[in-house]
Design a protein around this nucleic acid. Sequence first.
DNA 1: CGCGACTCCTGCCGGC
DNA 2: TGCCGGCAGGAGTCGC
Length: 270
Amino acid sequence: MPELPEVETSRRGIEPFLVRKTVTKVVVRERQLRWPVPRALDRELPGQCINAVSRRAKYILIDTDTATAILHLGMSGHVSIVDTGTPAGVHDHVDIELDSGVALRLRDPRRFGSLHWSRRPMQHKLIKHLGPEPLGPDFSGDYLYERSRGRKLAVKQFIMDAAVVVGVGNIYASESLFLAGIHPTRPAGRISRERYLLLARAIVNVLDRAIDAGGTTLRDFYGGDGQSGYFQQQLDVYGRADEDCNRCGDTIRSKVIGQRNTFYCVNCQR
DNA sequence: CGCGACTCCTGCCGGC
DNA sequence: TGCCGGCAGGAGTCGC
């Protein structure tokens, strides 16, 4: 489910329940997620006080004095805050119980998510190779332009490559290319600096707006199931094949690029 | 090294 | 109503 805005919204939702709380118990009901949940996590996390809940790309980092839990929600993961002792559903794989009487509960039906435990999270193999944060200071149109020289793959795949820039998932790739007026199949290396400036601005704009929308629609972290309203933001093209373009009225097309469905307007995007 | 294909898993939706 | 195929918002890995 989650793209970067959903992960950031989840992080903000759980943060106040975790920071300065001490972990009393870790319950792992299903260890086999995308990778096995390391036993060191349930062995070493209890007794630790949580210092911070941060985010790198689509990873949520739960920081303690000894190590950091690295949580990825995959395509179907959710986090929620429940009262300790709340019965778990079939896909509630992990609970992290706190001394405040609540627990952070991870649910992930498809089990594409993961949970790691690392003493140097920024050096972890899943984190180390990642490109800049799109909402951080190292991301710009100039950066995209330089990185794309000589690349032949479709620009949509280029901006979805986490080594180039993190956090641009399938929905927001289509949306930002629409905003920038760039056709998704255009080879990344054959797009001008000026157009990359537009694209970088579009990516930031789309993600900012989605985080704002998430903040208003995704608030049910305590007691709820951690989902609701992910899609209530306005999408211009994603999921709108055969509907009319909001800008020109032409018909929105869809096409599979790199095994992922892609939506665009042939009239507005070249 | 760059790129495309494949893979993990369950839920849900549309069509028959 | 029930069954079945196809598809889903991620991303590491493998082979060419």
